[in-house]
Write a protein that binds this DNA or RNA. Structure first.
Length: 676
DNA sequence: AGCACGCCGACT
DNA sequence: GTCGGCGTGCTC
């Protein structure tokens, strides 16, 4: 409706699905200067005195059109906004559109995404930033003219691993790529060693920066961040990099966030939340190792960084690069439908992978240590000259025990948790509650003695230390983090993903416990294992043997040929046959029988949608599974489910005696990992 | 969430 | 008549 004055369209910062839309308010004349899109505002909600915080999304009308023609959909009297929290425009229009789209896709709330995208406000940091910004407006505008000399020197070797027209040119042309990383290491002048992949990401970002555009570099964890940071320290202009790290203290995090709002191209490096950074003139989104589970957001609406990157690429019209040593089925699907273009290094050099069959191992000592003779000899020779990596499945000493007589796994008498040994001499204890099991008795038989069934890093280190007397033994796992390593001889026992990077690479790599890693019951095991193994294999030095123990078949072949796409293609083919994701999209709908029935009633009749169930899960809850196609069908499914969520949330009431309103019974989850 | 509105049973 | 129980719906 047409009315006088300025109108503010505001998103209320609330997790309630009923409030997940824009509310219109009038802007009092005295706030007209401050009330710009993106600022945090305080607005009245319903009764006077109740104030909610929100984000100003849009201003309708102009101050000088009096009586103005401001278009507002809302018919009724508008309340005035209470105040503007600060002049910092923290929610840029681009990030708002991204949040809206990413929330709509899985029937979620925009404010849930914005909570990831906009860090908590830090008043002092913000004031300092605002002061610096007004100073910059008045005076000179600092750019990134001061390119370091190191960057010029490094420029000579830019992209030597890929044909320029297969990587650099498409990235500057804003194309979408799936890039096979070079499985090798590069020594830096400061003595550190990083994966070539990290240098590739840094080089692409620097080239994008030189073209006047920002980059967002998304990596799973801080160890990966450190590698890319090391490459950027060398290549990128001073002051052009913002690091958005979940481990940062809040003030640092907010400072880095605000730096992205400065209207100049930047390089933003961080974990999955970096994909939401408000980068100015975005030219590139690059994501490393999209199969790493750290890329998947554990908070509702559970948007995976890969999906966020895909949506943002479409909105920003920038380049998109998925880089990795392995290939997820999701990316394989995008390659097969032609959405991503595959890029391979110019030379196909890869680690020398030797699959070994373990079943026929005759050597008793080797068998006890889970190492076949060939691997044993390779390690023995290699450890004379430099570090040797032994990758195992579990941290700790002996994380799993069983009854000596009946072989059933030993459980805690208090909480049913698994029993393990913290060290060779310690009393067995529960890994969940910590209770000591000094006087343990088997519940299945009369047995009173335990035997070790799985070996962790600790026990493996002990055994290998005995087998290789004189060798330095180093443990690297969650409890003993270690990132960098020298070139001196050592046996490095590491859990998957925790392998330190040695100068010059490992002289040999033993991948143990393959059988156990594969025993996990999940649709993803094959891909996960190949990812763990190839990421470790990429740390091999020139010509070093990588020995895959006890695994054969397609997995061993894919690693041996260094062709992860072959496995991903097979897997995707199977999922198509089964109509499993990512061949189709899925959502689970959980709640009371009536709520679930009400939510899916309109879906079943839709084209390209089928509803499985509902079946009872935990009394009195039932779960239905909705399978549907990509594209507009998915949008329709999400819209209908969101409407059901809103209906359900409005209807939930607090029972008479209870202090709290019960949680909504209707839960909708898209791409539910539990379904696989 | 938190509050107003409204539609039925017991009350001064 | 009307006070107030709580089920229902809305918040610009």
């Amino acid at each position: 409706m047409t009315r006088a004055g300025l109108v503010a369209r505001v998103l209320i910062d609330s997790p309630l699905p009923q409030l997940d839309h824009l509310f219109d308010y009038s802007i009092p004349a005295e706030l007209a200067d401050l009330a710009r899109p993106g600022v945090r505002v305080k607005v009245p909600l319903r009764s006077a005195g109740r104030v909610a915080e929100g984000y100003l999304i849009e201003v309708l009308g102009t101050p000088d059109t009096t009586p103005a023609a401001a278009e507002s959909e809302f018919v009724g009297a508008l309340s005035p906004i209470d105040g503007v929290v600060s002049a910092a425009p923290v929610l840029t229009p681009a990030v708002w559109l991204l949040a809206r789209r990413l929330a709509d896709r899985p029937a979620g709330n925009a404010s849930d995404i914005i909570r990831l995208a906009v860090p908590p406000r830090q008043v002092r940091v913000e004031k300092a930033w605002l002061a610096a910004r007004t100073a910059a407006d008045a005076g000179s505008v600092p750019g990134h003219a001061a390119t370091s000399a190191a960057a010029d020197a490094a420029a000579a070797t830019f992209f030597s691993d890929y044909p320029t027209d297969s990587l650099l040119v498409p990235v500057l042309g804003r194309q979408r790529l799936c890039v096979a990383a070079v499985p090798d290491l590069v020594p830096l002048p400061d003595g550190r060693t990083i994966g070539i992949w990290a240098q590739t990401m840094a080089e692409l970002a620097v080239a994008t920066l030189a073209a006047g555009r920002s980059s967002v570099l998304v990596v799973p964890d801080y160890r990966d961040q450190d590698q890319v940071q090391a490459a950027l320290d060398l290549l990128a202009p001073v002051g052009s990099v913002s690091r958005v790290d979940a481990r940062q203290p809040n003030p640092d995090r907010y400072r880095a966030f605000l730096a992205c709002l400065t209207p100049a191209p930047r390089i933003v490096l961080g974990n999955r939340s970096a994909v939401y950074a408000p980068a100015h003139e975005l030219g590139l989104i690059a994501l490393w190792d999209d199969g790493d589970p750290l890329h998947s957001e554990p908070l509702s609406p559970y948007v995976h960084a890969r999906d966020a990157a895909l949506v943002r690429q479409g909105q920003a019209d920038c380049a998109l690069v998925f880089l990795g040593h392995s290939r997820t089925v999701e990316v394989q699907r995008l390659v097969e439908i032609g959405w991503l273009t595959e890029v391979h290094p110019a030379r196909n050099r890869h680690p020398r992978v030797i699959p070994t069959d373990f079943q026929s191992e005759p050597d008793q000592q080797a068998r006890a240590a889970r190492i076949p003779t060939a691997a044993w000899l390779a390690a023995k020779e290699a450890v004379k000259h430099g570090p040797v990596l032994v990758q195992v499945a579990s941290p700790g000493y002996a994380p799993m025990l069983a009854c000596q007589s009946c072989k059933k796994s030993a459980r805690c008498t208090k909480c049913q948790g698994p029993l393990g040994l913290a060290s060779a001499t310690s009393t067995p204890s529960c890994r969940w509650c910590g209770a000591l099991a000094a006087d343990w008795a088997c519940v299945h038989c009369e047995g009173r003695s335990l035997r070790v069934v799985t070996l962790g890093t600790g026990r493996t280190a002990e055994e290998l230390g005995r087998a290789f007397p004189g060798a330095r033994v180093i443990i690297a796992d969650g409890e003993h983090p270690l990132q960098q390593l020298g070139a001196e001889p050592a046996l490095v026992i590491a859990t998957r993903g925790a392998e330190p990077i040695p100068t010059g690479g490992y002289r040999a790599i033993l991948l143990l416990d393959g059988e156990r890693m594969l025993a996990r019951e999940s649709l993803r095991v094959g891909g996960d294992c190949l990812r763990w193994w190839s990421n470790a294999a990429a740390l091999a030095g020139p010509g070093a043997p990588v020995i895959l123990v006890g695994v054969g078949g397609v997995l061993a072949r894919a690693l041996n040929n260094w062709q992860p796409e072959a496995l991903a293609a097979d897997e995707l083919h199977d999922r198509r046959q089964l109509r499993f994701p990512p061949a189709v999209r899925v959502a689970s709908v959980t709640g009371t029988a009536a709520d679930v029935a009400g939510a899916v009633v309109d879906l079943a009749a839709m084209d390209g949608v089928d509803v499985l169930g509902p079946v009872t899960t935990e009394e009195p809850l039932v779960r239905a599974i909705v399978r549907f196609a990509y594209g507009s069908t998915g949008d329709d499914v999400a819209r209908l489910l969101k409407a059901a969520i809103v209906r359900n949330a409005a209807r939930r009431r607090r029972p008479k005696g209870a202090a709290f309103r019960p949680a909504p019974t209707l839960k909708v989850r898209f791409d539910d990992p539990e379904l696989l």
